[in-house]
Simulated assay, not measured.
Amino acid sequence: MTAAVSAICSAILLLAAGFHIYWGFGGRMAAGVALPQRQDGSPVIENAAFGAIAVGLIMTLLFLLVLARTGVVRLPVPQAWLTAGIALWAIVFTVRALSWSRYVGLFKQVRTTRFARYDTLLYSPLCLVLGLGFFYLALADSAP
């Protein structure tokens, strides 16, 4: 079961990392639904290229963290630190998914924008899957 959870989390992380890096370098595909929007459709965040690249790199590092936690790769870090990192990110992804914020999360206030629809149907559920998957990996037996 750990291998399946690791594979699902890894696939989500790599896909999301790729899209964020693509957007950060000016990619336009799906860019209209990449940022939270106000009621009038204007983006909440302006000029987010650096942030998109940063998020993409963080997701790539999280991919490595998952691989290290499950023993696929070895990092010069104690297993307890890997477990703590996985647990911390489990909380981050779960909070992101279940957020009561204005623009993101399953309980967001602004629900009529294109971003909000994608957030409800795709982004928040994927964050919830990552959060639950990371919780599972944090609680699973350590890799050999």
Rank of each mutant, 00 (worst) to 15 (best):
G41I: 06
A49S: 15
G51I: 02
R38W: 09
G131K: 04
V73E: 12
F135P: 06
Q109T: 14
L13Y: 01
L15P: 06
F107Q: 11
T83C: 09
R111F: 05
R28W: 10
R114F: 00
G131Y: 03
A140Q: 06
M1K: 08
M29T: 10
L132C: 11
T94H: 05
G85T: 09
G27E: 00
S124Y: 02
A34G: 11
I53A: 05
Q79S: 14
S99N: 05
A17I: 09
P36G: 04
T113K: 00
R114T: 10
T83D: 08
G51M: 09
R117K: 14
L106A: 05
A80M: 07
A84S: 14
V72A: 14
A4P: 06
N47S: 13
W23C: 07
G41N: 06
G85R: 03
G105I: 07
F50K: 12
L137Q: 03
A7W: 13
A30M: 15
R28P: 04
R114G: 02
G51H: 04
C127K: 05
G26A: 09
L121S: 10
K108E: 13
V110Y: 00
R28E: 12
T60Q: 10
E46W: 00
A7Q: 07
D119Q: 06
L13K: 00
T113L: 04
L15S: 09
L98P: 08
A17N: 02
I8M: 11
A97R: 02
A90E: 08
W100Y: 10
G18R: 00
L137H: 02
H20K: 01
I12N: 01
S142G: 14
R111L: 02
Y136S: 10
Q37T: 04
S99L: 07
Q39V: 09
V92T: 11
A34K: 12
F107D: 05
A49P: 00
A7L: 14
E46S: 13
C9D: 14
W23E: 09
E46F: 08
L128V: 10
L139R: 13
A16C: 07
G32I: 00
P125F: 07
A87R: 04
A68K: 03
F50L: 14
T112V: 13
R114I: 02
L132D: 01
G51P: 08
V129S: 00
T2K: 15
L75K: 06
L35Q: 12
S101A: 14
P125D: 01
A143V: 12
A97D: 05
G51F: 01
V33C: 07
